[in-house]
C-alpha cells in the first residue's frame, strides 16, 4: 500500500488529475444510493427546471432530479463498461496469447476472423447485430465485448509474439518447459505493462461506445439512468438555451479524459520515454 502511494507520488501532475477524477467517479458510483438526494426514477419537479437548491443541476425532460440521475448514471454506466472491458480483455488476451504461442492453424484461424471483424466499422457492425438481436443489456454486453476483444487480441498477439522470439523464451523451450509455464511465467509478466495501458484505453473506448449506442437509443433502455441516454432524452432542451444535456455529456468526457491521462503516463513508463 505504501509502495502504491510512493508510486503515485512519482506521477506527473496530469496523471494525478486523472487519478483524482477516476477515484471520485468510482466513489460516486459505489455510494450512489447514499449520496443521491432522490430515488433513481422519482419525479420531483417540473420539466427542465433551472438549477436551484432543491435541484442542484435542475431537472430532466420528465421532471426528475438531474443530479440524482447523474449519480445513478455513473453507477450503471461504469459498472457496465467495466464488465464489458473485463470480458473483452479476458477473451482477447487469452486468444492472442494462444495464437502467438501455438501458432499454426490456431493462429491463422483466429487472426483471419479478427481481420474480418476489423475490416468493418465497429459502430455499423454493432448496429446491425443489435437490429437482429434486439437491444437487451445481455446482447449489448456480448456485442461490445466480442467486437472489442478483436482489438485486444491484436495487441496481445503482437506483444506475445515479440516476447516469444526472445532468447529467454527459447531457452525455456529448449529446457523442455510446457506451454503453460512459457505463457504464465515467461511471457505474461513481460507483457503486463503494455496490456495494463491497453486496459485503460479499452475502458475508454467501451465507455464511449456504450454512450454512443445509448445516445442513438439502442443501448441502455429507459427508465434506467445512463449518461448517454440522458443526453439523448434531453437533447431538445438545448435549442431553448437550456444546457441540461451538456451535464451528462461532460461527465462522460471527464471520465474518459481522466483515464486517458493515466494511460498516457503508463505508456510513457512502459516505453521508458522520459521527456
Amino acid at each position: 500500500m505504501s509502495s502504491l502511494i510512493k508510486f503515485i507520488q512519482k506521477a506527473p501532475w496530469s496523471a494525478r488529475i486523472g487519478i483524482i477524477i477516476l477515484v471520485m467517479n468510482i466513489a460516486v458510483a459505489a455510494f450512489a444510493p447514499v449520496i443521491s438526494p432522490y430515488g433513481e426514477t422519482e419525479i420531483t419537479g417540473d420539466v427542465w427546471e433551472e438549477m436551484s437548491l432543491t435541484h442542484p443541476l435542475g431537472t430532466d425532460h420528465l421532471g426528475r432530479d438531474l443530479l440524482t440521475r447523474m449519480i445513478y448514471g455513473a453507477r450503471n454506466t461504469i459498472a457496465l463498461a467495466l464488465t464489458i472491458t473485463f470480458l473483452s480483455f479476458t477473451l482477447g488476451t487469452l486468444g492472442g496469447f494462444l495464437a502467438a504461442t501455438l501458432g499454426g492453424w490456431c493462429d491463422t484461424l483466429l487472426s483471419r476472423m479478427v481481420d474480418l471483424v476489423l475490416s468493418f466499422p465497429t459502430l455499423i457492425f454493432a448496429l446491425m447485430v443489435l437490429s437482429v438481436a434486439g437491444t437487451s443489456i445481455l446482447s449489448l454486453i456480448c456485442v461490445i465485448a466480442v467486437l472489442d476483444a478483436t482489438r485486444v487480441f491484436r495487441l496481445a498477439r503482437a506483444v506475445a509474439m515479440d516476447i516469444a522470439v526472445m532468447d529467454f523464451v527459447e531457452a525455456g523451450r529448449l529446457r523442455g518447459e510446457k506451454t503453460g509455464w512459457i505463457i504464465l511465467r515467461e511471457i505474461l509478466p513481460n507483457a503486463l505493462p503494455p496490456l495494463v495501458a491497453e486496459f485503460g484505453l479499452r475502458f475508454c473506448f467501451v465507455f464511449l461506445f456504450i454512450a454512443c449506442l445509448s445516445f442513438l437509443g439502442l443501448g441502455i433502455q429507459p427508465p434506467t439512468a445512463d449518461w448517454g441516454s440522458m443526453v439523448k432524452e434531453n437533447a431538445g432542451a438545448i435549442t431553448f438555451g437550456i444546457f441540461t444535456p451538456l451535464w451528462p455529456a461532460a461527465a462522460i468526457a471527464l471520465i474518459t479524459v481522466g483515464v486517458n491521462l493515466i494511460v498516457d503516463w503508463f505508456l510513457n513508463l512502459a516505453s521508458g520515454l522520459k521527456e
Binding site: F215, G228, I238, L246, A249, I252, T256, V257, N260, D264
Partner: peptide, 18 residues
C-alpha cells in the same frame, strides 16, 4: 487533442450548438 479524443462525438456537437 487528448481531450477531443476522450469526448463523445455528441458532446462536441452540443457544445458547438450551444
Amino acid at each position: 487533442s487528448l481531450s477531443a479524443i476522450s469526448f463523445p462525438e455528441f458532446f462536441i456537437a452540443y457544445i458547438l450548438i450551444a
